[in-house]
Design a protein around this nucleic acid. Structure first.
Lengths: 144, 144
DNA sequence: AACAAATCCTAGTTAATTACTAGGAAATAC
DNA sequence: GTATTTCCTAGTAATTAACTAGGATTTGTT
C-alpha cells in the first residue's frame, strides 16, 4: 500500500515545472538536478506525463518541457494516474473466476475496496497543481 | 499503490471468522477451504492478526480461531494495519536527509501525501466488521 | 557543415518485495 | 497414543520496482 517513486518523483517534477517553466521550457537535466532524481529515470517519467497530455516538449538545444495546461486544470489525480496507472488500491478478487462474486463474503470485501478507492480518488481529484504552487509560495514566504 | 494479498486475504478471513466463529473456534483449514487461500500462507496471516490482538486461538484438536472482540470494536483499519503494517501510502521523501524538508517543493508534496493518507485512514477507520457482517446478511437475503 | 544540447525509444539489469512452500515442534481432545 | 490443530522459523520462486545503458533523432548556434 505505497505509492511508488514514479508517483512521488513525478509529482515533484510537475510542481517543479509549474514553478520554472512559465517563461521557457525546462530540461530534464535541470529538473533532475533540483529534485535530485536520476536523469535517465526521470526521462521515462516525463514520457508518461507527455503521453497523458499533461506536458508538452520541444526537442533540440534549448528545448525541454512545459505544462500542457494551466495549473488549475491539472489535478494530482491526473498526474498520479498518468504515472502509476490505475490508482485503485484493490480490485475485486473474484471477477477473474467464472461466476464473478458468488461468495457473499467476497462481495462484502468488494464493498470495502470500493469505499477505500473512492476516498483515494476523491482526495487526489480535488487537489490541483495551482493550489500546490500557491502553497509553495506561502512556504517560501515563511522562510524569509 | 495496491493492497497486497495479505490485506485482501486477511480481511476475508476476518469476515469469515465473524460469520462462523460465534459458537465454536474455526480452524485455518476450514477458512482456507471456504476462502480458497493457501493454508500455510493463511497461517502466517492469522499469526499477525493474533499478535495484533484481533483474534484468539486454541490449540489442539477441535481448536481454531475466534474473534478477540466484538465485531463492533474491530475496524477495517485495525485489520489492514495488522497485516500490511503502516497504511500510509507515502511518507515524506525528505526526513531521511539531514535537514528534513529544506526544499520547499518537497514540503508541498508532503502536504499532498498527508491528505491522501488522511483520506485512506478515515475510510478504513470508519468501517467496522459489524457493518460488513450486516451487509453480508443483506446480500445473502437478496439471493433467495 | 559541424557540434552541442536536448528529447525520444527500447532493452537490459539489479534490488527489493511479495507470495508462497516446507519442515517440524508443541499443545490438546478423544 | 494418535489425530488434529496451532505455532515457529527458514527457504524459495515469481513479480515488480527502480534504475542503467546505448544510441537515434531533432534543433539551435557558430
Amino acid at each position: 500500500m505505497k505509492l511508488s517513486t514514479k508517483g512521488r518523483y513525478g509529482l515533484r517534477a510537475m510542481i517543479d515545472l509549474a514553478i520554472y517553466s512559465e517563461t521557457e521550457p525546462v530540461s530534464i537535466q535541470s529538473i533532475a538536478d533540483r529534485q535530485n532524481i536520476s536523469e535517465r529515470y526521470l526521462e521515462q517519467l516525463m514520457a508518461k506525463l507527455k503521453k497523458a497530455g499533461l506536458v508538452t516538449s520541444t526537442r533540440g538545444a534549448g528545448g525541454g518541457y512545459r505544462l500542457a495546461k494551466e495549473t488549475g486544470s491539472i489535478s494530482v489525480g491526473d498526474i498520479l494516474r498518468a504515472l502509476e496507472g490505475d490508482l485503485r488500491a484493490v480490485t475485486c478478487d473474484a471477477q477473474e473466476g467464472e461466476g464473478g462474486c458468488e461468495k457473499a463474503d467476497l462481495c462484502v470485501s468488494r464493498y470495502v475496496w470500493q469505499r477505500i478507492n473512492a476516498s483515494i480518488t476523491n482526495a487526489v481529484d480535488t487537489m490541483y497543481l495551482e493550489q500546490l504552487v500557491e502553497k509553495n509560495k506561502e512556504i517560501e514566504k515563511g522562510k524569509e
